[in-house]
Amino acid sequence: MSSSAGAQGAPIKSTGLHIGEPAPGVKKVDPIIVADNITRTFGGLTAVQVEHLEIPRGAITALIGPNGAGKTTLFNLLTGFDKPDTGEWTFDGQGISGIPAFKVARKGQVRTFQLTKALGLLTVLDNMKLGAKGQSGESLARALFPWFWRKEEAEIEARAIDLLTRFKLDAKKDDYAASLSGGQRKLLEMARALMSQPTLVMLDEPMAGVNPALTQSLLDHILNLKTEGMTVLFVEHDMHMVRHIADWVIVMAEGRVVAEGDPHEVMANPAVIDAYLGSHHDEDLGDLDTGAMTAIKELADDDADEDKR
């Protein structure tokens, strides 16, 4: 695959990200996002209620939690796709709370979606070119006069083809994105996000619906982002992936951050087990959510495997 530190073997984890004991809302050495007091309610349901949260720069942070924990809602709030009831947050030191999504993206914080949004009836190459920021040909007045933007367009195309080659989509560049498989669309969406040369990449369930053969390649791409100096924040249900690549894990449940820390330690935290199994986990096993049980079992197996090595 790629030359990343992470291929197959254990990726190099960033450590020493936090100041003091890992706990919900712990201070980071160099935070890229600092959020305070974010709440979002839908009718009577409080979807997100985060008192303080810092996302470490230059690291891969995973946001995990059971379904309905408010992960995607928090994502939408941070990227400007939804407006919070209360809350302030800064990105790279600038307050960006309440500004529209497109301005957030222009500041270098780019996101992907849980349900992949490939622009189906644009070619793969056009999808990529759309990702580039600050194109002068995108202004209506200059669009009519190709000599203003022809050179820029050629540069963007070269960059797009370079990225497509890295994501092994270059053979598909003239096909409509609608003709790609689900996994290829995930790759395309990530590659398109990279066209904007972001500083923070936010991936909403990058592994959902991706077949195992593509998983490793996607993982490598995410690790590559870190080696290239970008910060990654992702939502994920696949615990293997979280454990494998995340430097830091934030656990949400019922809209709150219930735990934070290094992936290995955080899994052992009683608050996390509560969050996944429900606080009634001492009741009859038959009532338990089997999905969550499998996740926890897989983690236990993982730990056993690693101990053997």
Partner: peptide, 12 residues
Amino acid sequence: EDEDAVRALGKN
């Protein structure tokens, strides 16, 4: 094709 995707790429 998809407004939100375009918005996420920084277009107004």
